[in-house]
Nucleic acid binder design. Structure first.
Lengths: 133, 133
DNA sequence: ATCTTCATGACAACGATTCTCATTCCCGAG
DNA sequence: CTCGGGAATGAGAATCGTTGTCATGAAGAT
């Protein structure tokens, strides 16, 4: 077994292109169902299941970011590669990607101080942007 | 209307005492259903609905912290008052409350730099603790 | 063009959470 | 102490996001 078993396939289909295209249109985080709506509104017919599957695949491939509402709903948004966090307007959803090397180091150090290994973290900032002021 | 309308009542019942008691027993974050189980195991009979209601009320009163699994499930844990974050073992759930004044300032500054007001943030650190190493 | 296989979609199923509403019981007024 | 009103409870139904099922459709290799 020299090759790591690839669970993937990544077959290019009309539906996947439609979801990707819809993601380009949005600026903030959207739920799977909202994205399904957007796809429909663009004139592409894609089943809801497929939207869910596609978004999940993209999330696995780090092509979209996922975050959770207070109510537990998953929100998606296309993202730049690499580790980053988000500054999200809680009114209009406008999102700014931010980086914080200081924070990364702080988190790793805190974890190490307590004997924790294999460290990861989640960090999101919420506020109201100027246009929504 | 001189008095701020208090939506609350906080009537002391056997069930609420049972949930609070169960929360004392646990060290990590537990789901509402797990807490329901713990309450039952302790010999107190409390309906699942009531556990949910009680936990929500306690969360509103900042008596418990809530965080969300990747799968969107809500986890609860009794907490100290004041703003703090968590270092959670992703295997056993053991939790350490941590503070990070630096991070707070960083988040506020980043938000301000982008014109965001009324800022809040979420931050959790995950890892594997020594006992689970 | 053909064939193999992955992808799709309508719908059922699932699981966490919330709602409903008849009943229970906390607690302050009398 | 007793009563009465209204909050609290709980069993089960309902909700809602999400995932599973499986027959059909379509990429892409040969």
């Amino acid at each position: 077994m020299t090759s790591t078993d690839r669970p993937v396939s990544a077959r290019t289909t009309r539906q996947r292109r439609a979801v990707s295209a819809a993601l380009v249109d949005i600026t903030g985080f959207c739920s799977a169902q909202e994205i399904h709506e957007i796809v429909k509104r663009r004139g592409d017919a894609v089943g809801l299941s497929t939207v869910y599957r596609t978004l999940q695949a993209m999330a696995d491939a780090d092509e979209v970011d996922v975050l959770r509402t207070d109510e537990g709903e998953a929100l998606y948004r296309r993202c730049s590669s690499g580790h980053h966090h988000h500054l999200v307007c809680r009114d209009c959803g406008r999102t700014v990607e931010v980086e914080g090397p200081t924070v990364e180091r702080w988190a790793d150090r805190v974890a190490a101080d307590h004997g924790f290994a294999d460290v990861s973290h989640t960090l999101e900032i919420f506020g109201r942007c100027e246009s929504c002021g």
